[in-house]
Design a protein around this nucleic acid. Structure first.
Lengths: 213, 213
DNA sequence: TGTATTGCCTCCCCTTAGAGGAGAGTCAAC
DNA sequence: GTTGACTCTCCTCTAAGGGGAGGCAATACA
């Protein structure tokens, strides 16, 4: 059992926030001591983690409350949350792209089109639609190419293509920003990539991958 | 010159927000028409872009105002903004990491340490410090690890590293500029890459390479 | 030329997600 | 038994807008 201050330190939030979440019924302490002190157990901490994740995704506290009460299946929630965070990351990537364009066009003295200035600032719904479009485009070109090789399920291939693209962009980004080869983020990235390949039947040893890389 | 609605559509914000930014003196229209209509020119749009970027980085509007008035050098601002966005992206990556850990430890039924639950939720300053630490740690372990594997000639490794880097950058560049997978330049690039690998004793068939790619 | 629609304005109040602080009780340690 | 750190409730304050009313302005079209 943790007190407010302990929870606050553990989760890097303020005590005020815990009060607030209690008051609005979003995170009720596991137990209240005789003196009225809030005491939180592990399951409350887990709930707090969920809350903070959802908050990171710009859900309102009201929405978070619903999400957490309607759906008791934590794994599904986690899946969803990851998808949304990935989307958000991609949005940031797109903003970075726009930033780059702005910088280079400015160096060259070429003016940018006004509407170009705002790519990446779409609301997430628009953004989702745009992704959808691109996915379809990929599927098409991808299917076309595939006629020469083995037939595949589009669903499956799509997944692979997306993973690959994500991997490449992330790596390229790392190179561009001078992130070191031994950075933890890079290692994690590669780890996931290899795991993904393995899962999809293209096993490759870390050594071979390293040699090629 | 654009009216509020036009600017709103261009930049995907609401008219209300433009009113608001005008009222607090953050974004003053280039001109006010006889009837009191707000009219925005390109330089106002550029300022709006800056504002939205800073907002994305969680600066308060007050801070943004200062940043934009104190420093007239747009390029420096852009540089800074990109750094911060990159940092933010890395923070998201770390959160994703934590999410993954939570998921797998949950699948295996192993409980997670309470404090582990909150990695990635640090405020950005803490977060920067943590990254620094980890980098150093990795550098150490990396050197350490290398002792166990085969000794290599730096000359040779260098060559390979250079080829690899060149290949990656070229590919990344291609992706970024939307060059198609079946572009002749890409094919040539891949051809050279495969040949290089072969020469250096890491033969890989075109099929395997394609599968992995 | 009139009329309808759409767009714009100001003004005022509402909301969300907390932060700040006052005043008072509680706990642990020396 | 006192002190210092911690906790509680209650109240007010803030930032960043959103909603809507009431009233001009501009455009479209018949």
């Amino acid at each position: 059992m943790y007190t407010v201050k302990e929870v606050a330190e553990l989760s890097k939030v303020t005590v005020k926030l815990l009060h607030h979440y209690h008051r609005i019924g979003l995170l009720i302490p596991t137990e209240i001591s005789g003196a009225g002190y809030r005491l939180y157990g592990t399951e409350a901490l887990e709930r707090l983690q969920q809350i903070l994740l959802y908050r990171e995704l710009d859900f309102t506290l009201e929405q978070i409350k619903e999400l957490l009460q309607g759906n008791p299946d934590r794994s599904t929630i986690l899946e969803e949350q990851e998808k949304r965070i990935q989307q958000r990351k991609q949005r940031l990537e797109r903003i970075i792209e726009t930033l780059h364009k702005t910088k280079t066009s400015r160096e060259r003295g070429e003016p940018m089109e006004d509407k170009e200035l705002f790519k990446g600032f779409e609301r997430e719904e628009d953004w989702k639609a745009a992704l959808q479009e691109q996915n379809e485009y990929l599927k098409e070109t991808y299917d076309y190419e595939l006629l020469d090789s083995a037939p595949v399920e589009p669903q499956h291939m799509n997944e692979i293509a997306l993973e690959g693209a994500a991997f490449m962009t992330s790596m390229a980004d790392g190179l561009r920003t001078g992130r070191k080869h031994n950075d933890v983020a890079v290692a994690a990235l590669i780890g996931r990539h290899l795991e993904f390949l393995k899962e999809h039947g293209h096993q490759i040893s870390a050594e071979d991958f390293a040699a090629q890389a």
